[in-house]
Simulated scan of single mutants.
Amino acid sequence: MIDPFANNHQSMQIGELVIENQEDKIIIYGDIDLYLNQSGYEQAKQLHELTSKIIEVFEDPNKKTKKSLSSKEKNDQSDIVIDNPFL
């Protein structure tokens, strides 16, 4: 189980649903089929535990980080323009 908003390197998977952790956001993509059987029950419990942990961070101001955060997506972009080597 990930520690929501704690770092930029944790991820987990429930079924085909992928959850990626970052300090300023949680990214969720993919899909999941919850069948009415033991496997579906276990997956539903995992989803419930994950969403409960995420909501706890929003509700507890002490768990939120005090620093200004920005996602990797914004930090990885360079201001340097380079020539396209494929042209």
Rank of each mutant, 00 (worst) to 15 (best):
D3V: 13
D3M: 11
P4Y: 02
A6C: 08
N7D: 15
N8Y: 07
Q10E: 11
Q10V: 01
S11C: 09
S11W: 11
S11I: 02
M12P: 01
Q13S: 02
Q13A: 04
I14S: 00
G15R: 00
G15F: 01
G15M: 01
G15L: 00
L17Y: 05
I19K: 03
I19T: 09
N21P: 06
N21R: 07
N21W: 06
Q22P: 03
D24E: 09
D24I: 03
I27E: 05
I27C: 05
I27W: 09
I28T: 13
Y29K: 10
G30N: 03
L34P: 04
L34M: 10
L34T: 09
L34G: 08
L34Y: 07
L34V: 10
L34I: 15
Y35T: 08
Y35W: 01
L36A: 13
Q38R: 11
Q38E: 15
Q38H: 12
G40A: 02
Y41P: 00
Y41Q: 07
Q43H: 11
Q43Y: 11
K45H: 02
K45I: 04
K45N: 05
Q46F: 10
H48P: 01
E49C: 11
E49I: 13
K53V: 03
K53N: 14
I54G: 07
F58C: 06
E59P: 01
E59W: 01
D60E: 10
D60L: 04
P61I: 10
N62G: 06
K63E: 04
K63Q: 12
K64E: 08
T65Y: 13
T65G: 15
K67C: 10
K67Y: 07
S70R: 13
S70I: 12
S70P: 00
S70T: 11
S70K: 10
S71C: 06
K72S: 13
E73I: 05
K74W: 12
K74V: 12
K74F: 11
K74E: 15
N75F: 04
D76H: 12
Q77C: 09
S78R: 14
S78A: 14
D79C: 06
I80K: 02
V81C: 11
V81E: 15
I82G: 04
I82F: 12
I82T: 13
D83H: 05
D83W: 02
D83N: 10
N84I: 14
P85Y: 12
F86E: 05
L87D: 15
